[in-house]
Computed example of a mutant assay.
Amino acid sequence: MQAIQRFGSWLTKWFTLVVIVWALVNFFLPSTSMWAKSYTNIFLSIVLFGMGMTLSIEDFKRIVKMPLMVILGTVAHYLIMPLLAVALCKVFQLDGMVAVGVILVGCCPSGTSSNVMSFLSRGDVALDVSIGLLSTLLAPIMVPLLMSGLASQYVDIPAGDLFRTALEVVLIPVVLGITVHTVFGEKVSKVTTALPAVSQIAILVIIGTVVAVNNEKLFTRETAMILPVVMLHNLCGYGLGYLFSRVMFRIYPQGFRYAQQKAITFEVGMQDSALGATLALHAFAAHPVVAIPSTFFSVWHNISGSVLASWWRRRDDKYQIPADSHDGKRPAQASQPSKLRKVS
């Protein structure tokens, strides 16, 4: 088990690089992951079952203890990212299934990677986990609802398929994982140490499958604008998430302090792109290009999130800003006593 744990730590450290290498392997050798096309929902269910096994009643108590911040953070996520996706499709004149793919990843709940980035930046990890949990549990309702309202201009949205797939791969596995944790308690701790490695391998399989299925369409005129749009989507998500948290800080400064602002920034800007890719491959099976934005997002938001978390941490260290800072401003310099000139 220690070997698996060490492997999981190594994979977490180098995950972005591994994703890029794995994507290249599947681009040049698509047969590597083509076999998994029909099983992506199972692999994502494994990830979310593992997520459920790490949750306890305390995680739900946190939502009750700070409902305003959790609810507002979740609302911000489901408001900012979908509308931002629609705006970017308009600005870059994306159409058809490519636009549907961009909007789909924008309608997904926040990704588990945001928890890591919040931790690295010394953000409020408890708030981050709570928003991620609530947004994930709401996904079976929110994703088809938002897609029907925002993407129906491009194509008929299979809302029923989206709901059933999200229910099967999100809600049921998470609830089962929580149930297992509740029933067996500390006995599952030996298993949960292996979960990071298992989850990341499952996500790699999903990414490899999307790249393999879209091998001939990945870099064409039709998909040329997806990467810059995905990058802007993520970066603008960070910016608007931070702006939202700063506005809320002025309204409710006791709740939206510096650490909470970091958590909300990552929760708004980072998406569960593995869910987006899985929903695309199943609800839009005839158009696998819909899954490309989610795949690009999966690679990019890990890069941008790591950079932002590192910058935030270095800034705090440089200006000696404590993790529990009220507003994140530099501490006031001690005033120097003025020198009195001697009078001869």
Rank of each mutant, 00 (worst) to 15 (best):
I4C: 05
I4G: 08
Q5F: 05
Q5I: 06
T12Y: 09
K13Y: 03
K13N: 12
L17R: 01
V18C: 06
W22G: 03
P30W: 10
P30G: 10
A36I: 00
N41M: 07
I42M: 06
F43G: 05
L44G: 02
S45Q: 01
I46N: 00
I46C: 06
I46Y: 00
G52T: 08
F60C: 01
F60Q: 01
K65C: 00
P67T: 04
L68I: 14
G73K: 12
G73R: 13
T74L: 04
V75I: 15
A76K: 04
L79N: 01
L79D: 00
I80E: 03
I80T: 07
L83R: 00
A85L: 08
A85S: 14
L88Y: 06
C89M: 01
K90C: 02
V91T: 12
Q93R: 13
Q93D: 13
Q93P: 01
M97W: 13
V98H: 02
V102R: 10
V102F: 03
V105E: 08
C107S: 11
C107W: 00
P109R: 08
T112H: 04
S114W: 07
S114H: 08
N115W: 12
N115T: 02
F119I: 06
V125A: 08
V125D: 09
L133Q: 06
L134K: 01
L138Y: 09
I141L: 14
M142P: 01
V143C: 05
L145S: 12
G149S: 05
A151I: 03
S152V: 00
V155W: 03
V155E: 08
V155Q: 06
V155N: 08
P158I: 04
D161N: 10
D161T: 06
D161F: 03
R164Q: 14
V169I: 15
V170K: 00
I172K: 02
V175W: 09
L176H: 02
G177H: 07
I178W: 10
V180P: 05
E186S: 13
S189V: 07
S189R: 14
V191K: 04
T193I: 13
A194V: 02
L195V: 12
P196W: 07
V198T: 07
V211K: 07
V213L: 14
V213D: 12
N215L: 05
E216D: 12
K217E: 13
R221A: 14
E222S: 10
E222F: 05
T223K: 05
A224V: 09
A224N: 11
M225L: 15
L227T: 11
V229K: 07
M231F: 15
L232C: 13
L235E: 10
L235A: 14
G237T: 00
F249K: 12
R250I: 12
R250K: 13
Q260L: 12
Q260D: 15
T265C: 15
E267P: 06
Q271I: 03
A274H: 02
A280P: 11
H282Y: 11
P288T: 10
V289Y: 04
V290E: 01
A291E: 08
P293W: 03
T295H: 00
F296H: 06
F297V: 06
N302F: 11
A309E: 10
A309G: 07
S310A: 15
W311I: 15
W312G: 11
R313N: 15
R315N: 10
Y319T: 08
I321H: 13
I321C: 11
I321K: 11
A332Q: 10
Q333I: 01
K339R: 12
K342F: 11
